[in-house]
Computed example of a mutant assay.
Amino acid sequence: MTAPIWLLGCGNMGGALLRRWLGAELGPVVVIDPAPRGLPDGVEAVATPPAGRPDIIVLAVKPQLWWAATEALADRAGPTTLIVSIMAGVTTAAMARRFPASPIIRAMPNTPAGVGHGATALFSTAGDLAEGAAEALFGPAGMTFWLRDEVDFDAVTAVSGSGPAYVFAFIEGLAAAAVAAGLAPDLADRLARATVIGAAALAAADPAVPPGELRTRVTSPGGTTAAALDVLRPGLDPLLQRAVAAAAERSRQLGG
């Protein structure tokens, strides 16, 4: 893809995608952000949209601010300008009020996209050409999943969009438990990280094997893992259900 891309907002997620695009030689990319964070070397940002009309506008601003942030872009988008949003909660119908003539793609990537292991959910009614462009944008960031119903975005946001933070919190908790069990903090941190990375690699190595089967394979009856799971499992499933439900509800609230 050699289409001009305008990236509105360069925070953690926008910056992660930008680095993947540069690595895949997509672009050129214009970053529009008055206060960008962690721009890649050689990339500069502008505070306001430049002259001209882009082929793609990627909206990566906070959903609470998006309407004001896109005001200067409204007259830059036409029927051939693809609008791609990674904003939580903002619907395609809402974006169509700002960009009534443009095809719209809604996406929910996650931060592992920055290292090429992201999971991006996509939705569009814009047709095959726009969908092909979206695949080109998000393919370098990892796996893509097309949704049949836009309403599923709230659950997707709660699972994969917010999910990396749940895993990081688990690593923190596992390391803290290791320290409580007597390990030095540095060793506890390295063991917790390596354990989660290794377990994820096993899960990725054979997607046909259900996670429950993987769990069973490392759980000997009456052994140490079984003793730990007897404590962990009764509270884990309902806790995760409440966490995902809270995140999904917040996504709905952000959508207004």
Rank of each mutant, 00 (worst) to 15 (best):
P79W: 07
L26F: 08
P40K: 13
A94G: 10
T120V: 11
P103T: 04
I83R: 05
S102D: 07
A119L: 13
G118R: 03
T91D: 02
W146Q: 10
A133N: 13
I83M: 12
P34R: 08
E25V: 09
L39A: 01
A121K: 08
M143Y: 08
I86C: 06
A77K: 05
G89Q: 04
V30P: 01
S85Y: 12
R37C: 06
P103N: 11
T92Q: 12
A126R: 07
V46L: 14
M95V: 14
A113E: 01
G116Q: 11
A141N: 02
A93M: 11
G15K: 02
A88L: 09
F99V: 11
P40R: 11
P54K: 01
A16C: 07
T125E: 15
T70S: 14
G27N: 10
F123V: 08
P140D: 05
L65R: 11
G116T: 07
P112E: 01
R20F: 03
P79S: 13
T144K: 04
T92V: 15
A119K: 01
M143Q: 14
I32D: 06
P140H: 08
A113G: 07
W66P: 00
V46W: 00
G27R: 09
M87A: 15
M95H: 13
P50T: 01
G78V: 08
A107Q: 02
E71C: 03
A141P: 04
V84K: 07
V43T: 01
T144D: 03
G139E: 11
A69C: 12
H117Y: 14
G89Y: 09
L26M: 11
A72R: 13
